[in-house]
Simulated scan of single mutants.
Amino acid sequence: MTIPTRPRPRPVPQTGPAVWTAADLTAADWMIPVGAEEAAELDAVLTATEAAAPAPPLSRLAPILSAVTARLDTGHGFCLLRGLPFDRHGAEAAEAVLVALGAQLGKRLSGEGAPVARLIGPPPEGPASGPPRFHSEACDAIALLCLANAPDAPPHVLVSAGAVHNEVMRRDRALLAVLYEPAPLIEDGAETERAVFTMTGGAFAARYTRPAVEAAASTPRPGAAPPPPEQRAAFDLLDAVCAEPTLALKIEPRPGDLLLFNPQLVWKRRTLAEVPPDAPPAPQEFLRLRLTMAHSRRTVAEPA
């Protein structure tokens, strides 16, 4: 029996609001200021939660949260909320407010451990060592709440996955095609396959997982074919493009700011490391909440 060959992908340039460079955007494009009345609504939710009473509706915040959902899915892929009362009640209360707000946007990502993780920075290896590494979690949105951020702390660096895709295409179409091919990888101890770039049903999605691919290559399965030689060249090119200063947008959150991004469209360079909840305070400290959402590029682009 002849096994049909899978047609090779034919990448096309990505377009739309999610394809941007740092020069394309101003703070007004990604910052959402929250007024005192909207902040008071979330304060009321926290008060009700502490009293084990029914939470009041977020009638004034609802349009803002709808705008956040749209920005993450069909807009620039990220935004920053400024003015919510996260910094008024302490870290424990801030976590409760973050969970309450996340429940209005989607569902908390299920899995082991606490739903909200504590992150500090920079990580032990330092943000500038080796090629850039980016968030690649299997979720639809990541919410990072700033609790502390020293003036000399490294900024948060975001890149548009669509802009990276287009620049790789401009430099080498053949290597871009390699990045559309599923590659074996190991994540959370499990073996699977996934391409960096996918396009299914008109939905573009991207997950950069070079460490997971390298983990699979270093522990090959019996009978498995070795990685193609062009794979390393493709990942090297991807690293070089991600490091381009013209593509990177640098954001310096203030305490109380909430940065949200869709990791299928926007990659954030890792400058934080997860620590236990009882770890000592740090000059740079964040809470992270991962969400799944009703409309998910992840499930569209990664069919079971």
Rank of each mutant, 00 (worst) to 15 (best):
P7Q: 03
R8D: 15
R8L: 13
P9I: 07
P9C: 12
R10D: 15
V12H: 07
V12M: 01
P13S: 09
P13G: 09
P13T: 12
Q14Y: 01
Q14I: 04
G16W: 04
G16F: 03
G16I: 09
G16R: 14
G16T: 07
P17V: 08
A18Q: 11
A18R: 04
A18W: 03
W20P: 02
T21H: 04
T21Q: 12
A22L: 03
A22M: 09
A22I: 06
A23S: 11
D24T: 05
D24S: 13
L25F: 08
T26Q: 14
A27R: 09
A27N: 05
A27H: 10
W30G: 06
W30K: 05
W30I: 12
M31R: 01
I32G: 06
P33D: 12
P33C: 08
P33I: 03
V34H: 00
G35R: 14
G35N: 14
A36R: 13
A36N: 04
A36P: 00
A36V: 11
A36I: 11
E37L: 13
E37G: 06
E37S: 14
E38F: 01
E38Y: 00
A39Q: 08
A39S: 14
E41D: 06
E41P: 15
L42D: 00
D43P: 12
D43R: 09
A44S: 12
V45M: 08
V45H: 01
T47S: 13
T47R: 13
A48E: 03
A48K: 00
A48N: 09
T49N: 02
T49R: 01
T49W: 02
A51P: 01
A51M: 02
A51I: 02
A51G: 02
A52Y: 11
A52C: 08
A53N: 02
A53D: 04
A53T: 00
P54Y: 05
P54R: 04
P54F: 05
A55E: 11
A55Q: 13
P56A: 07
P57K: 00
L58E: 04
L58W: 06
L58K: 01
R60H: 09
L61C: 11
L61N: 13
A62H: 15
A62E: 15
P63H: 10
I64T: 15
I64M: 10
I64W: 03
L65S: 07
L65N: 04
A67P: 01
A67C: 06
V68K: 01
T69N: 08
T69C: 10
T69G: 12
A70Q: 13
A70E: 09
L72S: 06
L72R: 02
L72E: 02
D73V: 14
D73L: 15
D73S: 11
D73E: 12
T74K: 03
T74N: 09
G75H: 05
G75W: 02
H76F: 11
H76R: 12
G77P: 13
F78L: 14
F78R: 00
F78P: 02
C79N: 03
C79F: 08
C79M: 10
C79K: 00
L80M: 15
L81R: 07
R82C: 06
R82F: 01
G83V: 15
G83E: 07
L84F: 04
P85D: 06
